[in-house]
C-alpha cells in the first residue's frame, strides 16, 4: 500500500495553511514530517484522514483517489490516525478504549486485534482494567497508538507522539513506531522533535509554511547544515 500526496492545498475558513504539500509513503517505511509549530503538519494529516476537505491537490492510496470518501471509509481502507493530544476516553478502561478503536470490526476480528495490540504493547495488557485517564503520559500515548492499531491499518499516521513526554519516554514511544514498521505497516510520523525523529525515521520531509522545503534519507538530513542550524541547534 502506497500513500501519495501531491500538491495539496488546504486551510480553515480563509486562512490557507497548506501551499502545495507533497509526500509519499510506502509499506514498511517510517517517514517523518518535521517542522515548527504552524507549518501545516497536522493539517496535512487531517486532510489525509478526511477530517477536513482539501482545497486542491490529490491524495491517493495505491493510485486510487480518496477525494470524496468519508473519514470512516478511509479508515476502513487501511488508514489509521493517532490524533494530536491522544484524545483518549479517560473514564473508560484501557481495554474499552482499545475496543472503541475497532468499533467497525466484527467480533472475532476484534479479539484478534486485541491480541495483536497487546503483543505489541505488553504494558497495556498489564493495565487493561485501569482507567485510561490514570495512565502515565507515555502509557497514554501507547494506548492512543494501540487504539489506532485496533482497526488494522496498513498505514499509520501519528501526530506529535512525543508531546508532553520526558525525553526518555519520548524515545520509548518513538521506538515502538519502529516496531510497528517492522510489522509491515507504513508509518507517517509528524513531529516537532527533529533530533529524535531523525534517529528512528528512514526518510523525512522538512515542512515550512505549508510545503516541503527539504526531503531525503533521515541520516542525510541529520547531517544537513540547514537542518542542523534551524532545528538541531548545533
Amino acid at each position: 500500500m502506497k500513500l501519495t500526496v501531491s500538491d495539496l492545498t488546504a486551510g480553515y475558513a480563509k486562512a490557507q495553511v497548506l501551499f502545495g504539500m507533497s509526500l509519499e509513503l510506502g509499506q514498511g517505511e517510517l517517514v517523518a514530517v518535521l517542522g515548527a509549530n504552524g507549518a501545516g503538519k497536522t493539517t496535512t494529516l487531517r486532510a489525509i484522514s478526511g477530517l477536513i476537505r482539501p482545497w486542491g491537490g490529490e491524495i491517493r492510496l495505491d493510485g486510487q483517489s480518496l477525494a470524496g470518501l468519508s473519514a470512516a471509509r478511509r479508515a476502513a481502507l487501511g488508514l489509521g490516525h493517532v490524533p494530536e493530544g491522544r484524545q483518549l476516553f479517560p473514564l473508560m478502561s484501557v481495554e474499552e478504549n482499545l475496543l472503541l478503536g475497532a468499533a467497525f470490526l466484527a467480533w472475532e476480528r476484534r479479539q484478534e486485534s486485541l491480541e495483536f495490540t497487546y503483543a505489541l504493547f505488553p504494558r497495556l495488557s498489564e493495565r487493561r482494567g485501569q482507567l485510561a485517564g490514570t495512565l502515565s503520559g507515555g502509557e497514554q500515548q501507547m494506548l492512543a497508538i494501540g487504539r489506532a492499531l485496533m482497526g488494522r491499518p496498513r498505514i499509520l499516521m501519528v501526530d506529535e507522539p512525543s508531546l508532553g513526554l520526558s525525553p526518555k519516554l519520548a524515545e520509548e514511544v518513538l521506538a515502538t513506531l519502529a516496531r510497528i514498521k517492522a510489522e509491515g505497516m507504513g508509518v507517517l510520523l509528524v513531529e516537532q522533535n527533529v533530533a529524535l525523529s531523525l534517529e528512528v525515521a528512514d526518510r523525512a520531509y522538512v515542512v515550512e509554511h505549508g510545503k516541503v522545503v527539504l526531503a531525503g534519507p533521515a541520516q542525510e538530513l541529520a547531517q544537513d547544515e540547514r537542518v542542523q542550524k534551524a532545528y538541531l541547534a548545533l
Binding site: L51, S70, A72, L99, A103, R147
Partner: peptide, 24 residues
Amino acid sequence: SRLSYAMAAIRQGEAVARVLGVPV
C-alpha cells in the same frame, strides 16, 4: 452490540470516532 462501541466513541469525541472508522 457493536453499535454501543460506536456510540460511546461518538459521544466522547466525534473527530476521533471518525478517524477510528466509525460512520458517525
